[in-house]
Simulated scan of single mutants.
Amino acid sequence: MSPESSRFRSRRRTSAGGVSGVRRSRAVVLSAAVAVLAVALAACGGTSKDDSEATSAGGSAATANPNAELKSDVRMAFLPKQLNNPYSDIETGGGKEALGELKGEYKLVGPNDASASSQVSYINTLIQQQQDVIAIAANDPNAVCPSLKQARDSGIKIVAFDSDASADCRDVFINQATAEGIGQTLVKMTSEQIGGEGEIAVLSATPNATNQNAWIDVMKTELAKPENSKIKLVKIAYGNDDDQTSFQQTQGLLQSYPNLKAIVSPTTVGIAAAARYVSTSSYKDKVVITGLGTPNQMRQYVNDGTVKQFALWNPADIGYLAAYAGVALASGQITGAEGETFQAGRLGKYTIGAKGEIVLGLPTIFDSTNIGDFDF
Rank of each mutant, 00 (worst) to 15 (best):
D168I: 12
D168V: 11
P146H: 08
I136T: 04
Q130D: 06
S121Q: 10
T125M: 07
I156M: 06
Q130E: 03
Q131N: 07
A137H: 04
S166Y: 02
S121K: 10
A167M: 08
S121G: 04
D171F: 04
C169R: 09
C169N: 05
K149H: 12
I134Y: 11
N124E: 15
L126E: 08
S121C: 05
A143H: 10
P146W: 00
Q128R: 11
D132R: 12
A167H: 09
I134D: 09
V172R: 08
I127H: 08
N124G: 02
I158C: 03
Q150V: 08
S147V: 03
I127N: 14
L148R: 13
D132F: 10
S147D: 15
A165K: 04
S166P: 00
I136P: 01
N175K: 15
Q131W: 04
S121V: 09
N139M: 08
V120I: 14
D164L: 10
S147N: 06
A151Q: 08
I158Y: 02
Y122A: 01
Q150M: 09
Q131P: 00
K157H: 07
L126S: 13
N175V: 06
C145Q: 11
A165P: 00
A160C: 06
V120N: 09
K149W: 15
Q129A: 09
D162H: 00
A138V: 04
A151S: 12
V120D: 07
